[in-house]
Design a binder for these strands. Structure first.
Length: 678
RNA sequence: GCCAACGUAGCACAGCGGUAGUGCAGCUGAUUCGUAAUCAGCAGGUCAUGGGUUCGAAUCCCAUCGUUGGCUCCA
């Protein structure tokens, strides 16, 4: 269901890639999501930096051909942080080869060759490709430039075909480029990965060589320094350093375990969610972590999404299997032929029966079916609507091993879920209220860099991947769009990306290393409640099926906290801080330690996460270790403070704020926590 | 799942065919101090796991597991 454009978005989040090779322009033209953001087109020239990077891609191809003349190239565009070129080559390029390739690239930039634009006819381009002369240093008889050949064939008839030359190297390319190879001032190859031609696994597998390039060395160095800085706030690194969560091979990949410090954050988020949802008229429910297969047959998740679910536990089948095994072992030991025939018959019958008697349970991958069952458990009247059922439900999804990524992509997740059952008349107000809730949360966390993606259906796929309810699609999409427009939210509309049961809004954010994630989701469902036979009595005493809104403004704990760690660089505001206050007595003499203990006890009695460092380390060392763990507030207490009934306040990132009366400081802390100050 | 790289003490890393190392953290002492690290001692490892090559493997080869970067996927 992911379009090519979406894929590119994932790879290059901040600015959609400015694909410029013919192949990519063609994709962009066809691409329903092309309206998603700025994109290179005829009327919108590349920036200077993109020209440099696009040119660097050609220089990379030139260099690779000098080392491996048989290389076949596909596409080589600039991307957000650099460029790549896809190459087919028997030799597996590894980072060990980079030095050699970069040396050849250096020769090409030193030579300062002109990038020469040549317009050719389609026949000329085809002829060159067949002679192997495109993306090549010259003709290569017997090995046509096969990918370029394919690309030429796909260029629309009315489009001009151009080549670019630098030195011996000629490439099929729409340009533009810098004037000379020497204008690529500084470059570096960064990594290599694999890809399929045009992203389709049926196509040949290519090696994608990534690099980056800048106008000059200084900018390149700054870029890598910035990358180093970013790595410091990577949630995986901070999570380890701050002892927030951990993964364990024996527990399983993608199964995060929360240490006490991370759990403290979870508790705060749940407290926030529960308060907010309670005030907004939600009711809390609890459901088990698994359910029988039948429920997921009803919901349509099997077979549609069975691949993404953990395989089932099959109890009935296991009993049958045990009996079959037992009979089989008897079978091997039997001599009289009659006996063995009897056993074989029994085994076969058991096998047939096991298909029927099997009793399969699945770990839940989503909470909706359980909540639908709760809606259906009690007779409902229009007076009960809207009914808002909320649960921090634990879901399990069997994500592909290669997709797992720290806390951002896991296999077990705790979701800030709720389902709102309402009438069509109530829908717009409810959807709007959900939206307001999102914005309220984002304000609390100071989340500013996000994008709302409004996913709609594709009318040509009704009855296939979208429920065949043209009226309802139109109606709900209009309502959602209205809400977005009325609340003046910046959003992008993406056709063909809706859920099968209705349109949705996803909130997209980016991890510090640039990967895009859906942080939160708000979905309309006009399909599944009917499958569950959910009804309510109307004022006219007729039966209606409710609409359902699935919403998860705080997403999952895993992803949301992963995001928050990076958002705050581990420097959480007081209310979220795993260790809110640490009291640091100067020395470990009894009266001081007792004073510190009293302060800690007073804070803990008010629910503040406070600890005491009663160690014998010098005060500087105590401060250093508290700072290292990013403890929000440090209260230094020495004899001066003890005598005056003061504490000396030090705040992480702000330094020493001086001595203040103990009562005043505690009151301030409590107020800051209560108000969830930034 | 696919391609590639990487797995050495709790953490960060060195060693890359010849008896496992450093720093921080930890523990035990001493130190009793005013805002980012006091000193000393001790302890900690089947070098991810399993196989192979070799007189000898952390080091070379193969497989498995895990992590990472991409690809694919993402209800």
């Amino acid at each position: 269901m992911v379009t090519p454009a979406r894929r590119r978005m994932l790879a290059v989040p901040f600015f959609p890639s400015f694909m410029s090779d013919h192949a990519d322009e063609k994709n962009a033209a066809e691409d329903p999501a092309a309206a998603e953001g700025p994109r290179h087109t005829e009327g919108k020239p590349m920036t200077d930096l993109e020209r440099i990077r696009h040119s660097a891609a050609h220089i990379l191809a030139t260099a690779i051909l000098r080392v491996w003349p048989e290389a076949q190239f596909a596409a080589g565009p600039p991307v957000e942080n650099g460029f790549y070129y896809d190459v087919e080559l028997p030799h597996r390029i590894s980072p060990a080869d980079f030095e050699r390739i970069e040396a050849e690239m250096k020769k090409e930039t030193k030579a300062n060759n002109v990038f020469q634009r040549v317009e050719v006819s389609r026949d000329e381009a085809m002829a060159l490709a067949e002679k192997g002369a495109l993306a090549s240093l010259g003709e290569r008889p017997g090995s046509p430039s096969k990918f370029k050949l394919d690309i030429v064939q796909n260029i629309p008839a009315d489009e001009k075909i151009t080549l670019y030359r630098n030195g011996d190297f000629t490439d099929l390319c729409a340009g533009p480029h810098v004037g000379r190879t020497g204008n690529v001032g500084a470059f570096k190859l960064t990594h290599v990965s694999s890809t399929y031609y045009k992203g389709d696994e049926k196509n040949p597998q290519l090696q994608r060589i990534y690099g980056t390039a800048f106008k000059n060395r200084t900018q390149l160095d700054e870029y890598f320094a910035m990358l180093e800085e970013s790595k410091k706030r990577d949630h995986r690194k901070l999570g380890k350093e701050l002892e927030l969560f951990t993964f364990d091979e024996d527990v399983g990949p993608g199964l995060a375990m929360w240490l006490p410090r991370g759990t403290a954050i979870i508790e705060e988020l749940e407290k926030l969610a529960k308060e907010t949802e309670f005030a907004a008229g939600y009711e809390r429910v609890r459901t088990p972590n698994l359910a029988r297969e039948n429920m997921y047959l009803t919901s349509g998740h099997i077979p549609m999404y069975a691949d993404s679910m953990f395989p089932p536990m099959d109890f009935g089948k296991r009993e049958a299997d045990d009996r079959i095994k037992e009979l089989e072992s008897q079978l091997y030991g039997t001599q009289p032929p009659g006996q063995s025939v009897r056993l074989q018959t029994e085994i076969e019958e058991l096998r047939k029966a096991s298909a029927v008697t099997s009793d399969r349970y699945y770990l839940k991958a989503m909470n909706c079916p359980h909540h639908h069952k709760l809606f259906g458990a009690v007779p409902r009247s229009y007076r009960d609507l809207p009914l808002r059922l909320a649960e921090y439900g634990t879901c399990h999804r069997y994500e592909q091993s290669g997709e797992l990524f720290g806390l951002m992509r896991v296999r077990s997740m705790q979701m800030n879920d709720a389902h709102i059952y309402c009438t069509e008349a109530q829908f717009e107000a409810e959807f709007n209220a959900v939206n307001e809730m999102y914005l309220k949360y984002f304000k609390i966390f100071g989340i500013e860099k996000y994008r709302m993606r409004f996913s709609t259906h594709d009318p040509s796929k009704l009855g296939e991947i979208f429920l065949n309810e043209p009226e309802l699609w139109k109606k709900t999409e209009d309502m959602v769009r209205n809400v977005l427009i009325k609340s003046d939210i910046d959003y992008i509309e993406v056709p063909n990306e809706a859920a099968f049961y209705g349109p949705k809004i996803d909130v997209q954010v980016w991890s510090i290393i640039g990967r895009e994630f859906t942080l939160a989701t708000n979905q309309v469902d006009f399909g599944v409640p009917a499958k569950f036979g959910l009804k309510y009595k109307t004022r006219e005493n007729t039966e209606e099926t409710p609409l359902c809104i699935h919403r998860a403004p705080l997403g999952t704990h895993e992803r949301f906290i992963g995001f928050l760690i990076e958002h705050y660089a581990g420097n959480f505001p007081l209310w979220l801080s795993p260790e809110q206050v640490r009291v640091l007595p100067i020395g470990d003499e009894e009266p001081l330690v007792d004073y510190g203990k009293a302060i800690v006890n007073e804070l803990r009695a008010s629910g503040v996460r406070a600890t005491l460092d009663a160690g014998t380390d010098p005060i500087k060392a105590k401060i250093a270790s508290a700072e290292q763990m990013k403890v929000h507030t440090m209260l230094v207490v020495g004899n001066r403070d003890l005598e005056a009934g003061n504490v000396s306040v030090r705040v992480h990132g702000k330094g020493n704020l001086g001595a203040k009366p103990r009562g005043e400081v505690i009151a301030d802390l409590l107020a800051s926590i209560k108000e969830r100050r930034a």
